[in-house]
Write a protein that binds this DNA or RNA. Structure first.
Lengths: 206, 206
DNA sequence: TCCCGCATCATCCAAAGGGTTGAAGTCCTC
DNA sequence: GAGGACTTCAACCCTTTGGATGATGCGGGA
């Protein structure tokens, strides 16, 4: 009896690595691979995998959380196991809320991945041990430290202000605002003002 | 002389709480409880309460606004008082348009609830004072009605998605997304995605 | 003192976003 | 079946945003 798995990751290398690991086990069987959330939905609808192993960050297209929600809306719904590199609690919680069975850090041992898949297939909740306690305690992973000035810019950003408007409001030039924004984007791990707003609101930064 | 009241809320705990509050008053009398909008309609048709105290969010089934509209179509029509946790302008306006006598925030004092019920029974309009002006403003320039598709785009927009990502998520082209955005911006009276997000969140559109 | 983080500003360039016009197809209503 | 709302798409143009790089001045701490 093998557990069928669909791999979803935008990095071919990661997919190959996962496939190698999983192919070596006789308890799981990879039935497909997808590079995007959209592709994952199409494949899952046809292949009916028991478990979908899905990266949280999928590059272009819908993200892992949205993909999770859509996958869980399928009938029969696969168990969704989130793969993530970073332990951003907000995103992990979002995935859990979207119906994920749990998440695994990409750095865990192969056995842990296989074990996680088997447990997810059984309906268990799978949490990386070093993070499980934090999630349960409701603690947050250390949020990036923004400076006061950066928070000011972020707040104005969230009201929909343009760089020019932010500059006027803070009595600086647009160049300065852009400089702050670059730092903010970097710290939040985003690449657009809209996503910065979203992350800031999700993490309670503003 | 007591005012008869029907309670509608999907949470048994909330219903119990309201019943306890109202049972303590001799000016109102709870004649029934319903967990869903559908149930509320059946009970109201049989019990003829003077006032229906209805939660805006009812979980499964029809929502508070639809329930309000249906209740007001009864003969005799009960006064409908909306209970809500959040002061989401869009939903409140929808309830008022559907014929609600007003709304109460769940956090208000028991006396205010009883007072609101009595005033609603007399045909008065009941609005939480801090929101009344906003609602009146809204009545002058009613919130633009966004189509379902536009709301979908708006939701993705609020997550920080780019046009390309929205296009992929909705299986349309970027041209279509831009078209929707132009309409959304026009209806919301804004000129950038960030500001659209802000306005949408402020008004409870999303 | 010297280094580092912070805030400030500048320039250049590519990409994304936004505005406009026009159009085709569907669905619903009058 | 005519008209209207909605959704879809395209082509054009202009503005804004974001990325890269570099520079200045200020303040605190090793």
């Amino acid at each position: 009896m093998t557990t069928t798995v669909l791999l979803v990751d935008d990095h071919p290398v990661v997919r190959s690595g996962l496939r190698a690991v999983l192919d070596a086990a006789d308890t799981v069987r990879v039935v497909g691979e997808a590079a995007t959330g959209e592709e994952a939905l199409v494949l899952a609808a046809h292949l009916h995998p028991e478990v979908v192993l899905c990266d949280l960050r999928l590059g272009r297209g819908i993200d892992g959380i949205q993909t999770t929600a859509a996958l869980r809306a399928l009938d029969p719904a696969p168990a969704v196991l989130i793969l993530t590199t970073f332990d951003r609690d907000a995103e992990i919680l979002g995935a859990i809320e979207a119906g994920a069975a749990g998440y695994l850090l990409k750095e865990v041992a192969p056995d842990a991945i296989i074990d996680g898949i088997l447990r997810a297939a059984l309906g268990d909740t799978v949490l990386a041990p070093d993070l499980a306690s934090r999630v349960l305690k409701g603690m947050r992973s250390p949020l990036p430290r923004l400076t006061e000035r950066e928070i000011e810019v972020l707040r104005l950003l969230a009201t929909g202000s343009t760089n020019k408007e932010i500059a006027r409001a803070l009595f600086v030039t647009e160049a300065t605002v852009k400089s702050h924004l670059v730092h903010i984007f970097s710290k939040l791990g985003v690449d657009s003002r809209s996503r910065a707003i979203h992350v800031a609101q999700q993490t309670g930064l503003i």
